[in-house]
């Protein structure tokens, strides 16, 4: 018995054994990125450096502003409102989505604002937010918060409505209270949706961060982008842009990793084998 148990566990830990013969995912991704960089590098230099740039020029510019510490100081400045706004969005969006998804009255009362809020042209509202919150840290947090709140909230909401009725009935049949059903059945069952929302929000939060830096006090990575654009230094302008995209990719995989940790059953149920 112990023998069987062990072998089963081993199988559960390593992704599908038959995938071994195929090219690993990371190799394909690396190949794809290398190809794109190569093509870009090949054609880039023939374009007027004001209108475009290319990898080696961007790398040089990166070296330049990172050596002086300018890039890292800007990143640090940008990350502060990002972290606060983004985590605030998670802390409020998830519970909000859970209760709106679970309780009919709240759905009817609040659902409409959440749907509308998702489509809110936030950029247009930035001036108003500035009037309320000033030009500093607070308004940046607010912009990032508002941009990431809705995808998180809506995804959680959708997830709750997708929880199989039969699982909730398990709770009911053991006389679980509404709170217990919400926290111990609905929440774990919704986790994959919540994580998807949190991942979607990364992109929106990054965009919001730069938008906030453009429209409020010009600062952080946004300032590097604007200033180098004004100086027609396109290569330097690309440095923060590439950095932010890399950051989003990194954050995304970090969240995926976290998801595997908190919801290991999900990958097994939905099957991670792709064609």
């Amino acid at each position: 018995m112990a023998d069987i148990t062990e072998r089963l566990d081993e199988k559960a830990d390593t992704p599908a054994a038959d995938a071994k013969r195929r090219l690993p995912r990371s190799a394909i991704t690396t190949l794809s990125v290398a190809l794109v960089l190569l093509i870009w590098e090949g054609f880039g230099p023939y374009i007027n450096p004001v209108f475009g740039s290319y990898p080696s020029a961007i790398a040089m510019a990166f070296w330049e502003i990172s050596r002086t510490g300018k890039l890292w100081a800007a990143l640090y400045e940008s990350l502060q409102p990002f972290v606060v706004g983004y985590f605030l969005a998670i802390a409020i969006g998830v519970p909000l989505g859970l209760i709106v998804g679970r309780f009919r009255t709240l759905d009817a009362a609040l659902g409409i604002y959440i749907t509308a809020g998702y489509a809110m042209p936030l950029v247009a509202l930035v001036p108003l937010l500035i009037l309320w919150l000033g030009l500093g840290f607070k308004v940046k947090v607010a912009v990032i918060f508002l941009m990431s709140l809705f995808p998180i909230c809506i995804n959680t909401w959708v997830g709750v409505t997708a929880v199989p009725k039969s699982l909730i009935e398990v709770g009911k049949s053991f006389v679980a209270s509404n709170t217990v059903i919400l926290l111990r059945i609905v929440l774990p069952a919704t986790l994959p949706y919540i994580m998807a929302g949190i991942r979607l929000a990364v992109g929106r939060a990054v965009v919001a961060m730069v938008v906030a830096e453009f429209f409020t006090t010009i600062s952080g990575l946004g300032a590097i982008i604007i200033n180098s654009a004004n100086n027609f230094d396109t290569a330097t302008m690309f440095v923060p842009i590439v950095l932010l995209m890399l950051m989003a990719i990194g954050l995304n995989s970090l969240i995926l990793l976290f998801e595997r940790r908190v919801a290991p059953w999900q990958a097994e149920i939905s099957g991670r084998d792709k064609e």
Binding site: S166, V170, A263, W265
Partner: peptide, 10 residues
């Protein structure tokens, strides 16, 4: 006891 077990998958 449910017809389809209905265990909590997590």
């Amino acid at each position: 006891v449910f017809q389809h077990a209905e265990l909590l998958p997590w």
